[in-house]
């Protein structure tokens, strides 16, 4: 009996519960459930708002791409030890030590930073007689820290070959074969008017000390650049058989602002420092240099071991004074470079 009573009571409670639940749902629907029209409006508004938010935020992200990429590029290239300065240093210093009698104004190197790329532009000069002449310019493009082959626009009477070969070089080691008619070059010098100044590449019969070279020529001849023996100039090729070009350094102190050879250290020491920098960045330096092999590992060790021995030089001065170089016993061969109107004071 008691069990039956309990069951009935439970069933009653269940019915009450269901009835309350039903009433609540109905009441909720009556009170809060919006009409179909309102529901559609709410959904439409929600969709529009979501779409608008998505469009605005996508637009913001798109507009951020260029500034963020630019900023990241500047972070990569800039900073105290940024890549840009190292690459500019390599390109500029390479000119001083691989292009005879050529220099540049480091202060006037122009740079242009793009998206993870950089291009630099600079003019190059040669001292002929007593004046510096602009002899061309270089354009170098970089992607990150990888340079492309430089665009050289050289305005020279006798420009160096873009792809150097032993027979097209101007300076020769005593052991190297001189591939041109030596008398022909002296004839060129004889044929030039007296009122001109010239640049002459001189190759010696033996290795000499830098100071000896400076003393060897008269007072009216200026030694501009010294070609240094690095152990491979005799063969004119590196150990892999690739042609090499001379390594050397300016013989005079360069007063140009920010020149590495500005006299704060001895030019010989600066030369070694530059070779070390180029050795650290040899991949870039090789792309930028005319010679497709710099072989700096072997050449730098040779120079450090044997010291600076000079096998050739670039000199400049009045043409009549340069003709007298023919009388110097140590001069093996010459090659006439650029000639300009008289500017010797």
């Amino acid at each position: 009996m008691k069990e039956n009573d309990n069951d009935k009571r439970l069933n009653k409670e269940e019915e009450d519960y269901q009835s309350i639940l039903k009433e609540s749902i109905e009441e909720f629907e009556e009170t809060y459930k919006p009409s179909d029209e309102v529901q559609k409006t709410i959904i439409r508004k929600g969709k529009n708002q979501a779409l608008l938010t998505t469009i605005f935020i996508s637009l913001a992200v798109l507009l951020l791409i260029i500034p963020v990429m630019t900023l990241l590029t500047y972070i990569y290239y800039g900073g105290i030890n940024g890549k840009a300065n190292t690459e500019i240093e390599v390109a500029a210093n390479l000119i001083y030590v691989t292009e005879p009698n050529m220099h540049l104004e480091k202060m006037r190197i122009e740079d242009d930073i793009g998206f993870f790329s950089m291009s630099i532009h600079f003019d190059v000069f040669k001292r002929i007689g007593m004046e510096d002449y602009r002899v061309g310019d270089y354009d170098i493009d970089y992607f990150l820290d990888r340079p492309s082959f430089p665009q050289r626009n050289l305005l020279l009477e006798r420009p160096p070959e873009n792809i150097p070969q032993p027979e097209t070089e101007f300076l020769f080691h005593p052991d190297a074969y001189v591939p041109y008619d030596r008398g022909g070059e002296w004839n060129i010098l004889e044929g030039l008017p007296d009122g001109t100044v010239s640049e002459v590449y001189v190759s010696f019969t033996e290795m000499m000390e830098p100071d000896e070279v400076k003393r060897m020529f008269g007072r009216d001849v200026e030694v501009r650049w010294l070609a240094v023996n690095s152990g491979q100039e005799g063969r004119q090729r590196d150990i892999n058989g690739l042609p090499i070009t001379p390594l050397g350094y300016p013989a005079q102190i360069d007063r140009t602002t920010w020149s590495p050879f500005n006299g704060r250290s001895k030019n010989e020491d600066v030369f070694i420092e530059i070779l070390e920098l180029l050795h650290e960045n040899e991949e870039s330096a090789t792309v930028l240099a005319r010679a497709k092999s710099l072989a700096l590992e072997e050449r730098l060790s040779f120079i450090k071991e044997n010291g600076i021995e000079v096998y050739g030089a670039v000199i400049t001065g009045p043409t009549p004074e340069l003709r007298e170089v023919q009388d110097i016993d140590e001069v093996r061969a010459i090659k006439v470079g650029e000639v300009k109107l008289w500017n010797w004071k």
């Binding site: 951020l64 500034p67 630019t70 900023l71 500047y74 972070i75 290239y77 800039g78 900073g79 105290i80 940024g82 840009a84 300065n85 500019i88 202060m107 006037r108 190197i109 740079d111 930073i113 630099i120």
Partner: peptide, 20 residues
């Protein structure tokens, strides 16, 4: 970002090939 952007750019650009 836009407010600090020119300052960052100026500082970083100044460190690249800085010339007086």
């Amino acid at each position: 970002f836009v407010v600090i952007f020119p300052f960052l750019m100026f500082i970083l650009a100044y460190t690249i090939n800085a010339t007086p």
